[in-house]
Design a protein around this nucleic acid. Structure first.
Lengths: 336, 336
DNA sequence: TTGTAGGCGTTATCAT
DNA sequence: ATGATAACGCCTACAA
């Protein structure tokens, strides 16, 4: 009762394996009747060509790998949904790898992919460490790589990002116009390119409006809820900011929790805006002002660019560096 | 500069492919020095055994498939995270398939998996249609299948679910004790086993407390936000429920939006409780009372059971039907 | 239109 | 300890 193979099927039909193979590959030179006979019998015996074998023969896996820092996160899950949809259309399969922002895992995944498991990679980087040699190996193996959102600048490959600098500038300016004088910038990893870019927008907006840039107002958080809670509690007590710009959704949530706890009223005492892909931002208490990235669309575009590269031999062009626009949506948390 | 293979590597070293192969498989009979020489050269040439080939040889893919109705959803993304973690430990890879609650896609995915792409499947079903023949084929191919959360009762395989009946009973009772007399039950697909089970809990709780069961109070919704908004608006206007029990997170969100719009005050005019895995339920306006399923844990357990089955030849035992407990967390939306 | 045969890259078996 | 060889299941160039 085990899986049947092409040989057995051919035997049952008194045909050669080539003919059977042809029936499945939409080949030209095959008698219509024979083909039908084959497909009918295949159905009856529940035969399907073995992918492992045919992929090996054709030297491709019909699979793409998606590497993300986390998955239980609105932004990434929406991106993945976008990627999955495109892959499905192309009849490709999607492997998921979660790095938990861990550099070693990232290296390990990429390294293991160097072995025929995937034909291409879409990834949002962990941002730890500075040695990106392991990624260059992909290139030498002609395995196209697309970065989205969090990228390594020193790797020359397609990058799908959003206009982080402008958005951050706008968000900060938005808080200033709402009357904030002491705006805290919440970040998870200052060294990550994305953290830097967003911070520059913040700094330049302060400058433009003649507000001083104060180092302490840049609050370096972690990926851990508990830890962030402590960090923010301390910071809020000491600095007493009247505005918070969270560079990551999670930090906005922590801001809410801490504010509840300390009796800080949003938006009266503290105005908040955050990068976020949360679809229910309007349902929060108070509704959260957001800079919303086109997550789903980023997934779709990343996948399309990857497929184009795979179809054309693995090369990218300058036009494969896309910068999409995020949307600033003002809600109650920033005084709207 | 293309990928190198074992033959070329062996040639460079003046060794046979067998010896090189042994170096990679931790085989006993190999000279330590030779092994080191091989590994060093492999590193230099960036050689890695081709998975497609070795998997084919060993007749397994070291891959599991995860099929879910949707992915941009807290419950499913947390389950996936759990699965992914276990898979990683076992050095397995994870394929993701999204059905969008579409029966045809479900059938298509399952059918295509009958071909060596995966060694096992974890799935939460779409629940459309009643012909589950296609799943039986998996069994004949010795491909273990684990259902989680949404299952087909007529398929004899491992099932990881939660105590939906009891949770629903408790949730309904909770609303009754909070003073509700006219409780609406919101459901997406009445015919899905999960919808039925949860509804039974609702019905029995009404009975126990002497409240009439009224057909109109069971409100059949869809997966579309817009459509649900209309359905609920109509229903709320006509039925004027004082309690809502949402069998799915999404419907609680719609309830909030509609209530805002109609000026219905939660919890004063309407008390709400919902199945939900939302980590920020406390931040909603008002904070949402939830029945929270142990999503991450369900993922972990599903994966572990699948691996045990794969390791032991594909069979499940009665003890592989797990029923985990959800937690009822009372918050402001139900009057807490 | 169909069949024959070789090879994709790896590994286990058997021999040396 | 190492090497030669066959086999995994499929596909295609070539032959008939």
């Amino acid at each position: 009762m085990d899986a049947i193979n092409i040989k057995q099927l051919a035997a049952k039909l008194n045909l050669s394996t080539s003919t059977v193979s042809r029936a499945f590959r939409g080949h030209s030179d095959i008698n219509k009747e024979t083909k039908e006979r084959i497909l009918a019998m295949a159905k009856e015996l529940n035969y399907q060509p073995n992918h492992l074998a045919s992929n090996m023969r054709e030297k491709r896996s019909k699979t793409i790998a998606v590497i993300v820092p986390e998955i239980a996160n609105n932004f990434f899950s929406q991106v993945i949904r976008g990627i999955e949809g495109v892959a499905r259309e192309k009849d490709y399969h999607v492997l998921i790898y979660v790095t938990d922002d861990n550099y070693e895992k990232e290296v390990a995944y990429i390294t293991h992919l160097n072995s025929g498991r995937a034909d291409g990679v879409i990834m949002s980087v962990s941002g730890e460490a500075n040695d990106h040699q392991y990624l260059k190996k992909l290139k030498s193996k002609r395995m196209p790589l697309v970065f989205f959102d969090r990228v390594y600048e020193d790797i020359d490959t397609a990058k799908i990002t959003t206009n982080d600098y402008e958005s951050s500038f706008d968000a900060t300016e938005h808080l200033i116009k709402a009357g904030c004088k002491k705006i805290a910038y919440l970040v998870v990893n200052k060294n990550l390119s994305i953290g830097k870019t967003r911070m520059n927008g913040y700094i330049d907006a302060l400058k433009k409006h003649g507000l001083p840039y104060v180092d302490e107002y840049v609050i370096d958080c972690s990926n851990d809820y508990e830890a962030n809670s402590l960090i923010l509690k301390e910071a809020f007590k000491i600095l007493k900011p009247d505005g918070v710009f969270a560079s990551v959704e999670r930090l906005a949530f922590s801001t809410y929790y801490v504010s509840y706890e300390l009796g800080i009223k949003i938006p009266e005492d503290l105005k908040v805006i955050s990068f976020s892909s949360l679809e229910i931002a309007p349902l929060l208490n108070p509704s959260l002002s957001t800079i919303t990235q086109p997550a789903f669309d980023m997934g779709v575009k990343s996948a399309k660019i990857l497929f184009r590269a795979m179809e054309s031999g693995g090369d990218f062009s300058e036009s494969d560096n896309l910068i999409l626009n995020s949307k600033l949506i003002q809600r109650r948390s920033s005084g709207g």
